[in-house]
Amino acid sequence: MKVTTLDALRSWLDTVVGEYDVVAPRDVDGHVLYRPVATSGEIVFSYERPELSVKDYLLPATEVLLRVEKRGGEVTVEENLADRGQVIFGVRPCDAHGPATIDALFLEQEPPDTYYSHHRARTVLIGMACPQLWEGCFCTSVGGAPDDATHLDVLLRRVDGGFAVDTVTEKGAKLIAGLCVEERDGAPDAPTTEGEAVPVMPPDAWRPLFGDNIWMRHGERCLSCRICTYVCPTCRCFDVADRVVEQGAGITRIERIRVWDACTSTNYRRAAGGHNSRPTKPVRLRNRSFCKFRYYPEDYGPLGCVGCGRCIVSCPVDIDITEVLQDVAERSGR
């Protein structure tokens, strides 16, 4: 195996920040979050699962798509596309499965999403394997693993005195060409993956359960907040709005922005005239679950859940998607 030391990794990262936008796990007032960093000193190398996924850097919570300027009779429209490359460091394996899931809709369907594909193309994902499953994690039940290299460009795994380096893609190889590594015997320890497998029923098993009381039982205590959708690496609903940012003296500047939306929120389905076709918490929770395990896989291929467990640990009223999955399995009697 190829091994690098923490010091070598740090000095290499300090060269990368000059050339790329670098995002890495950072301790933000006690919360480990993927955040932009200016030096390797800001990065935490020992962490569990960052509380939010890397989604924000590929499909930002708020992104300016277009800048429109009207000067007298003249209108100019400018597309906002970042020109630097982006490196996301310390990506947990499930967080690489997240964008791969979104790709099935945003890249592989026609027409591809301009802004998302731009971020995807400019981004290199450097993974950091998990030594174990953290609270709520069930990646191993949905096609992932704590040390899964799929969908990453480089995978790092902790070994004595440093990190084992696995190059996964061409893009990754190019990026880490300057990283100091040495050849060593042995292999990294396998992660511990104890815990019961969560049963995941195929999409067609869900159909008869649309009217089941599972949704009332779990959904009635839901708060209709947006935590579960915002922390989720695969939830990708968005909204688009125009806003005036400057107006006066013959000049108007407008931005077209895209922001995250959440199907769990009260007014997600509100239409003109006030009609809401998903008026209650249980039907909204049902939609989120069906989206992940029936609609998305049926329509685009991958499951809409990578098993990161974030929604489970962050729901304030203990709505647990693995409990829903257990109930679905039980009800469908397979």
Binding site: A61, C225, R226, I227, D239, N267
Partner: peptide, 26 residues
């Protein structure tokens, strides 16, 4: 700055029951 505007604070509050919150982003 850390707030992700999930609105959980509002949604859980017994006193926050306006059909359309004045501070709702939508």
């Amino acid at each position: 700055d850390r707030c992700i505007r999930c609105y959980a604070c509002r949604q859980v509050c017994p006193g926050c029951y306006c059909t359309t919150c004045m501070f709702e982003r939508d």
